Computed example of a mutant assay.
Amino acid sequence: MDVELKPLNDTEWPQSVAALREGFAGRLNVYRTMAHHPALLAAWAPLREHVVRQRAMSDQQSEAVILRTGYHMQSSYEWAHHVSRGRAVGMSEERIASLAGPLEGMAPEDRILARAVDELVEDARLLASTRRDVIRLIGPEGMFDLMATVGFYSVLGFIANSLDVPLDDDVAAELQSRPAP
């Protein structure tokens, strides 16, 4: 039996997480898809608040980590959304594009962040030298937030990729008029 789990519309939305529909969860198809599991979505909300809003990285550092994670996840959904977010926080097209390429083609700060993402995704650990560089750049709390961000967006990539979550209309329209690098 093939089960299709599409993003839930407002009339299908579970009552147990009704308050989340008016916030972050109702705005994105990945969360409208996660709403098929209301308990997970409810548990997800506090972690999302920290990873997205309360983290120890700057907006651009966070977007660099998310873009590199999306690249590794081969998640067109996450990549597209964070091209849009990266642009919104002032990242250049060249910088965004570099995050899908070799470390040597990146600015020094992005190279440190991307190397950390690469090690976490490929080896499930940070090498001591990378850990030192990350802590020098963003501090110990930033290092933990970087790891949490990679894990958080990997899960979203799993959902988006496994369930073919459609790109949200506003991001699709933006990329139609201004394609991703």
Results as ranks from 00 to 15, higher is better:
Met1Val: 13
Asp2Phe: 13
Val3Thr: 11
Leu5Asn: 03
Lys6Asn: 10
Leu8Pro: 08
Leu8His: 05
Val17Leu: 02
Val17Ala: 04
Val17Pro: 01
Ala18Tyr: 04
Leu20Ile: 06
Arg21Asp: 13
Gly23Val: 02
Ala25Trp: 01
Asn29Gln: 02
Asn29Ile: 03
Tyr31Trp: 13
Tyr31Ile: 01
Thr33Ala: 03
Ala35Gln: 10
Ala42Leu: 06
Trp44Gly: 00
Arg48Leu: 12
Arg48Val: 02
His50Pro: 06
Val51Leu: 01
Arg53Val: 03
Ser62Ala: 14
Glu63Phe: 08
Val65Tyr: 00
Thr69Glu: 06
Thr69Pro: 07
Gly70Glu: 06
Tyr71Leu: 04
His72Lys: 12
Ser75Gln: 04
Ser76Gly: 12
Ser76Cys: 08
Ser76Ala: 14
Glu78Ile: 15
Val83His: 05
Val83Asn: 02
Ser84Ala: 15
Arg85Cys: 07
Gly86Cys: 08
Arg87Met: 08
Arg87Leu: 11
Ser92Lys: 09
Glu94Val: 14
Arg95Lys: 12
Leu99Met: 08
Gly101Asp: 05
Glu104Tyr: 01
Glu104Gln: 12
Glu104Arg: 06
Gly105Arg: 12
Met106Gln: 13
Ala107Pro: 00
Pro108Ala: 05
Glu109Tyr: 04
Ile112Phe: 05
Ile112Trp: 04
Leu113Glu: 03
Ala114Ile: 04
Glu119Val: 10
Asp123Leu: 10
Asp123Cys: 06
Asp123Glu: 12
Ala124Gly: 01
Arg125Leu: 11
Ser129Ala: 15
Ser129Asn: 10
Thr130Ile: 07
Ile135Ser: 05
Glu141Phe: 02
Met143Asn: 05
Asp145Gln: 08
Thr149Asp: 01
Ser154Trp: 08
Val155Tyr: 14
Gly157Lys: 10
Gly157Ala: 15
Ser162His: 09
Leu163Trp: 13
Pro166Tyr: 00
Leu167His: 01
Asp168Ile: 00
Asp170Ala: 15
Val171Ile: 15
Val171Cys: 02
Ala173Phe: 02
Glu174Thr: 12
Ser177Gln: 15
Arg178Cys: 14
Pro179Ile: 10
